[in-house]
Write a protein that binds this DNA or RNA. Sequence first.
DNA 1: ATTACTAAGCACCGAGTAA
DNA 2: TTTACTCGGTGCTTAGTAA
Lengths: 232, 232
Amino acid sequence: MAETTRAVGHDELATLKLLALDGAIEGERKASCSTIADRLGASNQTASRRLQGLEEADMIDRDIVGDGQLLRITESGEQALQREYADYRRIFERSVGVTLTGIVTSGMGEGRHYITLPGYMKQFIEKLSYEPFAGTLNVDLVDESVRKRARLSAFEPITIEGWEDEERTYGPAYCYPASIVAGDSEYEPAHVIAPERTHHDEDQIEVIAPEKLRDVLDIDDGDEVSIHVAEQ
Amino acid sequence: MAETTRAVGHDELATLKLLALDGAIEGERKASCSTIADRLGASNQTASRRLQGLEEADMIDRDIVGDGQLLRITESGEQALQREYADYRRIFERSVGVTLTGIVTSGMGEGRHYITLPGYMKQFIEKLSYEPFAGTLNVDLVDESVRKRARLSAFEPITIEGWEDEERTYGPAYCYPASIVAGDSEYEPAHVIAPERTHHDEDQIEVIAPEKLRDVLDIDDGDEVSIHVAEQ
DNA sequence: ATTACTAAGCACCGAGTAA
DNA sequence: TTTACTCGGTGCTTAGTAA
């Protein structure tokens, strides 16, 4: 396991939130310590240290360019903000689950190949308490859900460890408990499965379950399904 | 104007969030410094100080009862949390406006009386840039919107000052710019108007506009309307 | 103009203690 | 048990300075 990243304090998190409000999640943003200091109500030395701290904690990437710096929030920075967001949603909303919507589609059969590998399958049985059907349900997320998908990073996933054989290494994956709704039918248990290293703005999602979801839910390519990932 | 309350630091805000997660917005919650200290990852002296600070800042009410304390988040405490929540919504959602839904209803004609008083009317014309129709549209909010209504407190309102004549005093009110949707019609400009001191869980809302909304939107008692309060 | 180092001051933290 | 005070020690903040 890699060295766990240095934790950030609440002051640093507030600085990170400020950068996020400027759009530093979507891409690089130019800023200077003094402008940040003004908005924080602190000295620019403090702003400088906050940014250094966030960089040390791997929450931002920085390029110092003479008349300021180019800042970008990293994936773990976004996750920290998503966790905060989830807290506030839990405070002010009834439920904090995430419901993702999309269209059933045919993947390239990769999912089937990977999940049936013994190195993964053994962990599924142990950690998910069922033996998954040998295939994944691929779902093309609608635009709104592509964005909502990032909320998953605020949840505590079930971690499937990576492993390796003589030929190559197989990366870790995260599983999120979910229920799948299609029309009037709902199926549980199921899990959203995602590789540890996921691209930003991923527009597809894969689901595993003990049975063949296409059969038990009577769905096929082009049908709409909802994937409800439960709180905790 | 009353003495503006002492500002809270980010550490204190995090403590307030913790209490909110325990449900201290809805009602009184029992807690002790040591349990809070554990969850904060700090000493109970620090927890004690945080609670003192939050009380000083008028964000919580406390009753110390020997084997702990009874804590309740005040309205300004909830507002501070709503402002944070609004920040995170702005980061992760496309829009941070609030859309409230409800049913048109007949008020008791109080609104009409108050808004036509010269002490208020003069300010409306000056601050809203229109002369309101002499009456308010009363809307009974649906349950979900009763809760969402609290989000308004995160927005910057247009403040209508209170005043007094020989007989009595008239309290201040807040106006929030809004557009009103009924069926396929949308009307703008309009403002949600709320007295400064509002009860928790208020289930009705009043709207003013330059024209008689019942006429221009062709609505009557029992019709559903949406009130979109814009960002900023 | 930047960022960031160093050093002085001060505010915060937590142990001990009292009520 | 509690909460909250006092009091050292420490670490954070800011001013000044360098690059």
